[in-house]
Design a protein around this nucleic acid. Structure first.
Lengths: 174, 174
DNA sequence: CATCAGGTGCTGAAATTTCAACTACTCGTC
DNA sequence: GACGAGTAGTTGAAATTTCAGCACCTGATG
């Protein structure tokens, strides 16, 4: 290795700003959820993802990918959710290794209850304050970051949401 | 409360993209530090901040604010760093309640050793991939996020770095 | 069919973070 | 100089996350 490529002052400022801002934001969301629903952000995300999924259930690995958790972390988190009665484990019928995490009615109720406050806060801290151009920039930058870490194929497999609406209907393929 | 203000599809995609992207990025940095220097990101930040501070030391509260940690978390983290021999606790002379966390020589060596790899990764995942305009957008958006959570005065007190270079030299004030 | 690389999910222990007090000190006021 | 509110930092226990390793299943290959 020759000379380390340091950050310019400008880059340094940008990086620190991003770091601080995202942490402040996530902390704030965490606090709101804890306060109003006694949920951690991580827990909320799991419940939210499940609630949006067909059959209110997902394969463990898919859920982990969607939430950007490693498998162990998800497994422990699901343990706790099962103990709370909000999630049920169901063995996969198509793959004997697989488990589905399935939202219970109680779990679904919990999401419905906590979602509005959470969404309202995201809106008020983020979208109400960003112009349309800034929102586009944010998505653009996020895409750059994500593809910097994972290739597009992997992102796609984990349900990467940044894509603009499909250019062709799926049936028109091939 | 009347009707909850939900997110549009577009906003939903932007939000999820941001969430996933930042998590992927931070996870990656965490992994790199763990792998190459056996440091957590949190630990690295503490050491880095101290190393940049005059006298290689900071008041606990200031350090906590700079790293966006709560005081308890920082206190525990510093405990560990003291046990590692990388940081020393020094009572503040001006305020008998206060403590300084001060980097030891060993600690300084540790930062010097781990910084290049870390910076290189930030550069390659972020700055090498963003145009100048995108970098500006990122800073702009970060500022919006941060001021959405904290007022500018508080940000300033915690060493918010997003400011463009001061319009006047400090001595020209008043 | 047997093998084997790779994928899935779980587990227990260790490390870290969160949470709710608690002590000690400062500052402004009386 | 004593009071009381507010600040600085620590502490211990509980909750969560990380880490390494395990057991099991699948799918490809021979």
């Amino acid at each position: 290795m020759a000379e380390a490529r340091w950050l310019t002052d400008d880059e340094q400022r940008t990086w620190r700003s991003f770091l601080i801002a995202s942490r402040l934001l996530f902390d704030r969301l965490e606090k709101e959820l804890k306060q109003n629903s006694n949920l951690s952000f991580a827990t909320y995300e799991i419940l939210a993802r499940l609630s949006e999924s067909p059959g209110r259930s997902m394969r463990m690995a898919d859920l982990a990918a969607a939430c950007v958790f490693d498998r162990s972390r998800l497994s422990h988190a699901i343990d706790r959710l099962v103990r709370s009665g909000w999630v049920r484990r169901v063995p996969s019928t198509s793959d004997a290794r697989g488990q589905l995490a399935e939202l219970t009615d109680e779990g679904a109720r919990q999401v419905r209850e906590s979602a509005p406050g959470h969404v309202e806060l995201v809106r008020s801290l983020l979208f109400d304050r960003l112009s349309r151009e800034q929102q586009e920039s944010l998505r653009e930058v996020s895409t750059v970051l994500a593809t910097g870490v994972l290739d597009p194929a992997r992102l796609d497999r984990m349900g990467w949401p940044a894509a603009t609406p499909r250019p062709d209907p799926p049936s028109a393929r091939g």
